[in-house]
Design a protein around this nucleic acid. Structure first.
Lengths: 109, 109
DNA sequence: AGTTATAGTTACTTTTAGTAAGTAAAGTGT
DNA sequence: ACACTTTACTTACTAAAAGTAACTATAACT
């Protein structure tokens, strides 16, 4: 097996985890709370928690605790995370050019 | 649950399937055969076959049969597939800027 | 101390991925 | 004609990841 490109492989390993793309899409709009993301995406608390933990470990997002009542916890992109903006934008652009209405409908069956 | 962007969600659904990114990376270099991809990527025949079938159905790749001895089958990107070049390039560029040597090493444990 | 609101976690089921061995098709050699 | 190659898959089985629903933790407020 050839080496291909270890950094690219590592990046794809992150991206090919379910929900990661959509979580990043959300966070590019600005910092969000757990419950916001949970309600805006069709992801369960269990997986959202798991992914946020992973993205924090990869230093792509940052978890900030605000001691209010009730406690507010916000997730925000780091510089490394913000640098993914062009990637998300390219995927968005591609999907608008090449994904047909029909395909979108059929994917929900 | 908000609608977000159905086309983007559909695109991420494709991308977040394991090996899809690496298969596209390979095919952007030019048409490839099954056995070539199998040996260049750490993917098993079963999944490679499944992914190629899926990508063909999505019209991202094309399967061409050449009646030689032994039979030669090539997979090539369609225009829709070639249009993913900027996406792959952006991921590559991000990974080169932000994935450290250490991260690459640790991901193989 | 008990209530409330957010942010998770746990235990369980279903789906997807990984592995290894086997089958299919079709041109070749005898 | 028929067994032999070579590539391209498929099948049966095991392991890992994702989905679901109910439950717990924390901490400020009353």
């Amino acid at each position: 097996m050839k080496e291909l490109c270890p950094r690219f492989e590592k990046a794809m390993q992150l991206f090919s985890k379910r929900w990661v793309g959509l979580i990043l899409f959300e966070l590019l709009e600005g910092p969000k709370r757990f419950s916001e993301m949970e309600s805006e995406l069709p992801v369960s608390g269990r997986l959202l928690s798991e992914r946020l933990k992973m993205l924090e470990q990869e230093q792509i997002i940052e978890r900030k605790v605000y001691s209010e009542f009730p406690v507010r916890i916000e997730y925000a992109l780091t510089d490394k995370g913000k640098a993914l903006d062009p990637v998300i934008k390219e995927i968005q652009s591609w999907s608008e050019s090449w994904i047909t209405k029909k395909e979108v409908e059929n994917s929900n069956l």
